[in-house]
Amino acid sequence: MTWMMPCERLLTMKPTQKLVFILCTLLVLGFLHYASWKIHLLVWSQKALHNIQATKEPLRKTLPPEDGNPSKKDCKKGYAAERMTNIYPKFVKKVPMFLDQNFRLLPKVKDYLPPFGLKTQEKHIEEILNTTKNYRLGKDLDSLSCKRCVIVGNGGILSEKNLGSHIDMYDIVVRLNGAPVHGYHKNVGTKTTMRITYPEGAFQNLNLYDKTSLFVLSAFKPEDIKWLKHMAFKERLRSTKGFWKSVANRVPQEPSKMRILNPYFIQEAAFQFMLLPKNNGEMGNGNTPTLGAIAITMALHNCDEVAVAGFSYDLNKPSALLHYWEKTKMSAIKESQTHNITKEKEFLKKLVKAKVITDLTSGI
């Protein structure tokens, strides 16, 4: 059989054969065109799906954060300190939160008695620190490059604010004295990073302690340091002389969870921020800040963003609740021989106005 080109073979075919050949050729070409279209459609669909999946996650990440949600927005590193230097140019951020074994080298506090310094208490402090063996917040919090802190005050203004879940979103939640948490979660949250107190303000009911949080002493008098020593060594108090009311005989926290607040914050808040009288370095004549103002001062040195909640002493509302957990009214406040509430309110208002701190309950 002689080999011929397709065109030559087509010329020799009979009419019926030509028709069959043409129809078969058209069917083959149609099938190939249809198949190529389907393959193209499949490839295009896969590429489109891939592009959607590739852009889906970045789009989610760029969605605007929920307003006021501290866990959803970028932490502004150094924000509070930067704002603070605008109104107090001599403000220096780096001041240790708690006393450590180098406490004797701390400037400005060694020459003052408590609450403004450490004079006469060095030996007791050293013994306490040797027992606690820890002087910082803890590994997880210390490793944060930017810290958001909230100081939860005890004011009745917290009642029915439903701020609990918001408060719990901060990296560090600071509570004061014996302000309870259990039963008030909706308004004050559940999280406690540290509780700053003094002997007369500490829980006497051992069931109220959160054993995972830090127990931080703010010493207002020499007896307070000695009291903490008894608590750290699990020793029963032999005397309560020097305290203005009954104090706890035991603190269920382990020594590793105990800290001593740097008294520099008390001195700075009193003499530099509020311009209270030095009174020869002794407590009295309204020259000592409240624990709330002290805690805020501490946070300004150690946190990048600082918020407060539950701060309000509005004497023009005598029927308002004084504390969120009890029925005592604002009218129960008397002129204090220890604190200057007027000067303190001016200081806190200055911080809010300058946007150094955020007042979550709008009570300052």
Rank of each mutant, 00 (worst) to 15 (best):
residue 7 C to K: 07
residue 14 K to S: 14
residue 14 K to Q: 14
residue 21 F to W: 15
residue 25 T to N: 07
residue 27 L to A: 07
residue 30 G to V: 06
residue 35 A to S: 08
residue 38 K to M: 11
residue 38 K to V: 15
residue 43 V to M: 13
residue 44 W to L: 15
residue 46 Q to F: 12
residue 63 L to Q: 13
residue 63 L to G: 04
residue 65 P to G: 11
residue 66 E to L: 14
residue 67 D to M: 15
residue 69 N to E: 15
residue 74 D to M: 14
residue 74 D to P: 12
residue 75 C to G: 07
residue 78 G to I: 07
residue 79 Y to S: 12
residue 82 E to N: 07
residue 83 R to L: 14
residue 89 P to D: 09
residue 90 K to P: 14
residue 94 K to V: 13
residue 96 P to T: 04
residue 98 F to P: 01
residue 98 F to M: 03
residue 98 F to S: 03
residue 99 L to W: 02
residue 108 K to I: 08
residue 111 D to A: 05
residue 122 E to R: 01
residue 126 E to G: 06
residue 127 E to A: 10
residue 134 N to S: 13
residue 134 N to V: 07
residue 134 N to C: 12
residue 135 Y to G: 04
residue 136 R to E: 13
residue 138 G to A: 04
residue 141 L to P: 02
residue 143 S to E: 13
residue 148 R to W: 09
residue 149 C to I: 08
residue 154 N to F: 12
residue 154 N to Y: 12
residue 156 G to S: 05
residue 157 I to Q: 00
residue 166 H to N: 09
residue 166 H to Q: 10
residue 167 I to N: 01
residue 169 M to Y: 08
residue 171 D to L: 10
residue 172 I to C: 09
residue 176 L to V: 13
residue 181 V to G: 01
residue 193 T to K: 00
residue 193 T to I: 01
residue 197 T to N: 01
residue 199 P to M: 02
residue 201 G to T: 06
residue 203 F to S: 01
residue 214 L to I: 00
residue 222 P to Q: 08
residue 223 E to G: 07
residue 226 K to Q: 13
residue 231 M to Y: 08
residue 233 F to K: 05
residue 234 K to H: 10
residue 235 E to F: 07
residue 236 R to A: 13
residue 237 L to P: 10
residue 241 K to M: 09
residue 255 P to M: 06
residue 260 I to M: 03
residue 270 A to S: 11
residue 271 F to W: 08
residue 277 P to T: 09
residue 286 G to D: 05
residue 292 G to T: 09
residue 295 A to S: 11
residue 300 L to P: 05
residue 304 D to A: 10
residue 304 D to F: 06
residue 307 A to V: 03
residue 307 A to M: 09
residue 309 A to Q: 07
residue 310 G to D: 06
residue 313 Y to R: 04
residue 315 L to R: 09
residue 320 A to K: 01
residue 323 H to G: 06
residue 328 T to R: 07
residue 336 S to H: 14
residue 339 H to E: 14
residue 344 E to M: 03
residue 347 F to I: 01
residue 355 K to N: 13
residue 358 T to H: 12
residue 358 T to M: 10
residue 362 S to M: 10
